[in-house]
Amino acid sequence: MQSNFGISRRRLIQAAGASALVAAAGLPSRLFAAEPIKVAAVFTVPVEQQWVSRIHKAANAAKDRGEIEYVYSENTANNDYERVMREYCEAGHKLILGEVFGVEDAARAVARDYPDVAFLMGSSFKPDPDLPNFSVFDNYIQDASYLSGLVAGALTKSKNIGMVGGYPIPEVNRLMNAFMAGVKEVAPDTRFQVAFIGSWFDPPKAKETAFAQIDGGADLLYAERFGVSDAAKEKKVLAIGNVIDTQADYPDTVAASALWHFEPTLDKAIAEVKAGTFKADDYGVYSFMKNGGCSLAPLGTFEGKVPGEIKAKIAEKEKAIKDGSFTVAVDDSEPKSS
């Protein structure tokens, strides 16, 4: 006859083993408090820059929830990027975030040297199965950009729209092309002035480029870069925002914005790191609207200025995008003036 002590002891051992398995799988356990993972980010621009600000926002949200410890470096020069990455790895960080568009080879070399660290990097390239700890992401917010184009097509009177971008790379091109497709659906005879300033953060140059487009007849500007909305405000024309919502700063200027939500991307990576299942993958899909990765900002001060039929069309298209019955094309080709 088995003693109560033996049964209790065996059950305790079984329970402890089960709990260990749960913890190893990265699943919630009432017996073991999950330690926050150490996350570091390396940015080449200030954290207030549109694109990086969304990564920073999502990381701070995860930090506030107690899921991660978070530190970051901003304004990191390309020739210093690898050193900063290595220092974070040596300091015990388990997930490194960043944007490696200009330092792709160096970043992947660091990942090879630290196979126990997970890397989630903004990149134009695909993951490499031979580098299992290096995943890529991108701002695939073409869905929201297309919807913002519907607004722009309804509001432009001159049918002449200026577009100011940083560089003609896929992550910029696809958003511009989606925006233009939305405009043309409402106002097919619209002309576009397309320019790239050769910088990710040069508001004065973006502003001067926008002034030139306004002089060329544009009555609405696509503000892919900071500085464009300032020009629009000064010249009393309209603007469409990108990645972040700046309407509070430009209530009479910014009619709509395509917003990027990095939370689904980062939350997925955190879960994989905790579960020990992080692998080389393309996280771009988590920026799609159907996955909560992007949205059209509320029309706010322009709620009464956008025609009712356009708002109805936006609602219809948004529903179709989310249920998969309508797909916004991912066109990475360089947009041209027309």
Rank of each mutant, 00 (worst) to 15 (best):
P204V: 04
S124A: 02
D267W: 09
M163T: 01
G324V: 05
K322E: 11
P129T: 09
P115S: 06
K205E: 08
A144C: 12
P129M: 05
P46T: 12
A109H: 04
G17E: 08
S333M: 12
Y88M: 07
K126I: 12
V243S: 07
G198H: 13
Q213H: 08
K94L: 02
D138S: 14
T327Y: 11
A255E: 07
D215E: 06
A91W: 04
V100H: 00
D116L: 00
W200K: 10
Y146R: 06
R86I: 05
K313L: 12
S29V: 11
P251L: 06
V273Y: 03
S325D: 09
I7Y: 11
F326G: 02
Y222V: 01
S145L: 13
S229K: 02
S19D: 11
D245N: 15
A181S: 15
F43I: 12
D189S: 13
T277H: 03
N78Q: 05
I13S: 09
K157C: 04
G292R: 04
D245E: 07
V273Q: 05
L97C: 07
L266N: 03
Y70T: 03
C294H: 00
Y140D: 12
A25S: 08
A20N: 07
D323Y: 08
Y140W: 15
V273D: 02
E272L: 06
I37M: 15
A187V: 09
G149N: 10
T246R: 14
T44C: 11
G166V: 00
K233W: 08
A280F: 10
V330S: 06
A106T: 02
R225Y: 03
F262R: 06
D230W: 09
N242I: 06
R174H: 13
F32K: 14
K319S: 12
S53M: 14
G304K: 13
S229M: 13
F326N: 03
Y222H: 07
A312V: 00
N60W: 02
L266Y: 07
M180N: 10
I240P: 05
G300F: 00
M85N: 14
L131I: 14
D267L: 06
A315H: 06
S295D: 12
I96S: 02
A106Q: 14
P203M: 05
L266D: 09
N133Q: 14
G293D: 05
S8Q: 12
I13R: 12
T253M: 13
F262N: 09
R108P: 02
E263P: 03
V183W: 10
S338L: 10
D202W: 07
T44K: 11
E48D: 15
A195S: 14
E69A: 08
F134M: 12
I214L: 02
A297H: 04
A218D: 01
E272V: 00
G182L: 08
A181L: 13
V328P: 05
A59D: 04
S158Q: 10
S29G: 14
K159S: 15
A218P: 01
E303R: 03
K317P: 00
A223F: 08
S199T: 02
S338A: 13
A206R: 03
L299D: 01
N173S: 11
Q213F: 01
D138P: 01
G122N: 10
T246V: 14
D143K: 09
W51V: 15
E99H: 09
Q142R: 06
Q247G: 03
V151Y: 07
S53T: 13
A275K: 06
R112P: 00
Q213K: 03
T246Q: 15
M163H: 08
M289C: 01
F101Q: 01
G276S: 10
V151S: 08
N160I: 10
R86K: 11
M180F: 15
